[in-house]
Design a protein around this nucleic acid. Structure first.
Lengths: 242, 242
DNA sequence: ACTGTTGCGTTCATATTGGTCGCAGAAAGG
DNA sequence: CCTTTCTGCGACCAATATGAACGCAACAGT
């Protein structure tokens, strides 16, 4: 299989160029074009399909000047364009994520993201494609077993075997972050340690890690005697495993 | 969240009834209707959406008398119908699988299949839906982190479990799981090894397998010095024997 | 303004478990 | 009867939360 042809649909020129630069750094992908809005994206897709050089993957922003990303996906299908879609957007509404899945979005990247996250998503997609490629091009037949299909879907899933720093356990991280998500007000390490049954040192270590990775915001609490206390509030900006 | 409303699209009456019977055996799903061909499926979907009782999930056969399954998916999107699609079909061509993914098929079931396989796919989908449900319905806000989205996608795409990993004996597995079932409180590997007369390593390996397969829940026990101890609690969500 | 008090941030040694490696005994196959 | 494979075990190393001790920054008297 040759390189996967990618169309970047993004209205901000800077972001569009950044995505193109990221694509260039990846093995197995090539930028087929860029479009600043939905209409030109659809036109480009049609032209390339007519020229027998179809786009196979679209990096699609949701907020575009003329059309919503979900609309673009639907119109692609109406026009018989079979490109896969990876959503790259700052929209974090769960309803949009669900709708995106139902119109065929295979990966959902939330801005801002690091190159590592970007590379992981596209690499997963490439692995998915390779598994669904015909093992014997000359055979003409390409039957698949349920297991083959499952394996392909699994490679599309984010493996997320996260390289956490030494001394941190994934389950503890889950416990702390889900507890933080349930809080509405900012909490201190002491307030975290008690309900979870862990020590203050441990609670603080995980809170500190979450703050560094950007998932929670950290601020100081004054007004009481003693050293000022750090308090943490869930913001959910970025994956804690990035 | 109430039950997920399912529409079954299948031209063979026997298969259609079988699917409906399977759905009835599952928790959290309800059959909203059945359709023997593409046109009536689209009509039903439109009517139910207009009646404010939209179908949320379509079990879609690919080979129908009037339309191809992929066409139905595209027309659904053109009509603004947001139901998710699980393909249930005997078609095993890789090209069809790829096209299905690009039009938003979330699961792909190859006929014939067992109830266990069917239940697994639908259970994955339900878990995906639950993770993307708004935690607070009245809040109006539903922001998600990259990690949330990844986890939801992962639960949708987890492959079927392998029969039994190397190094595990069915008899020992039975002993461990039945012992766990008899416990009311969570137990650690050390607490399992003694009554069953096995070594800690062996007990831990079986507990770990049960945790991975979803039959038991795993959590950490804090509060005491030393490395945190994993404790396991029987939940019985899934048969350990696949 | 100075100093004591207070409570959290930070570091380090320690305790206790998890995970892996290689081996012994048993079961299966020829 | 011999060979191969599999299952469980002991012992090692790695991992990770805890507790104590120390330091630091803000408050509260004098």
């Amino acid at each position: 299989m040759s390189h996967i042809r990618v169309l970047i649909v993004e209205d901000e020129a800077i972001a569009s160029a950044a995505h193109a630069a990221y694509i260039a750094r990846l093995e197995g992908f090539v930028v087929a074009g860029t479009a600043p809005d939905g209409q030109s994206a659809l036109r480009l897709l049609g032209e390339m399909a007519a020229a027998a050089k179809p786009v196979e993957l679209v990096l699609l922003d949701m907020n575009l000047p003329d059309l919503h990303g979900l609309d673009i996906a639907r119109r692609m299908h109406s026009a018989g364009l079979f490109a896969d879609i990876i959503a790259i957007t700052a929209v974090r509404e769960l309803a949009v994520v669900r709708s995106a899945v139902s119109v065929g979005v295979v990966q959902y990247l939330i801005k801002p993201f690091t190159f590592a996250t970007f590379a992981e998503k596209l690499s997963n997609y490439r692995s998915f494609r390779l598994q669904l490629a015909s093992p014997e091009p000359g055979s003409g037949q390409a039957p698949a077993s349920q297991n083959d299909v499952d394996q392909a879907f699994a490679s599309l899933r984010t493996p997320s075997e996260s390289p956490l720093p030494k001394g941190l356990a994934p389950s503890t991280l889950d416990a702390v972050s889900s507890f933080l998500k349930a809080q509405t007000a900012a909490v201190s390490a002491t307030q975290v340690m008690d309900p979870l049954g862990m020590s203050r040192v441990t609670a603080r270590r995980y809170l500190e890690f979450l703050a560094d990775s950007g998932s929670v915001s950290r601020s100081a609490r004054y007004g009481t005697p003693g050293r000022p206390e750090n308090e943490y509030l869930w913001t959910g900006r970025q994956s804690p495993k990035g």
